[in-house]
Design a protein around this nucleic acid. Structure first.
Lengths: 96, 96
DNA sequence: CGACAGCATTGATACTTGTCCATATAGAAG
DNA sequence: CTTCTATATGGACAAGTATCAATGCTGTCG
């Protein structure tokens, strides 16, 4: 998802409840096949979901996109120790 | 930062208070020049900070790495409306 | 059925970049 | 100053991929 065009798509979806596929060409500045390609990537990665209504396909953020992002964020954030769990205190002094 | 080798570096730094540059070659599986290259990228992007002590350079997560991540996460997360600010309610119905 | 519009796919191309080897620089120690 | 170790840099190569033009597919509407 860390790619300019895909970020533009995700940010558009973050601002609006749902977006028609044909609208992404204008907000990304790339052609329709390229948009289709990125939508496929994001769809298969589980970031977005598409729903066909007639000729159009409306996309929205996947229900647990925020949770996925949180999981990734946690893996690269300093370990936080829950004060109610003193047994894990040693994790913080893991000095190799 | 979304790149396997760089993620491995960041995760190592998330688990340990500080890591010597020479230790990243083993935990990433790439050669020393490659590690040096990625450290430079992460340093210039503001994710990590390095401190030279003698011959070694010790790296740690930048103080506001977590905040940077939060900012990015927020930009691709569904807009949340603060219940105490009804004037912004219209943002949620921005249907193009 | 035929025409049209939205979306997907294919093939080709060019650009990006992660990786390595070789080498240069910086600091410490003898 | 010389030597050794740690890190940085330069160049080259290959893999990945973002992009587009052309085309195919799938719905909708006369």
């Amino acid at each position: 998802m860390a790619e300019p065009t895909r970020l533009a798509i995700l940010r558009q979806l973050a601002a609006l409840p749902e977006v028609c596929a044909c609208d992404f060409t204008s907000c990304t500045g790339v052609t329709q096949p390229t948009v289709s390609h990125h939508l496929k990537v994001l769809r298969e990665a589980g970031w977005i979901v598409g729903e066909r209504r007639g000729t159009w396909i409306f996309y929205r953020l996947a229900p647990d996109a925020a949770r996925m992002l949180g999981t990734i964020a946690a893996s690269v954030s300093p370990a936080q120790i829950t004060p109610t769990d003193p047994s894990r205190r040693r994790l913080n002094v893991l000095q190799a």
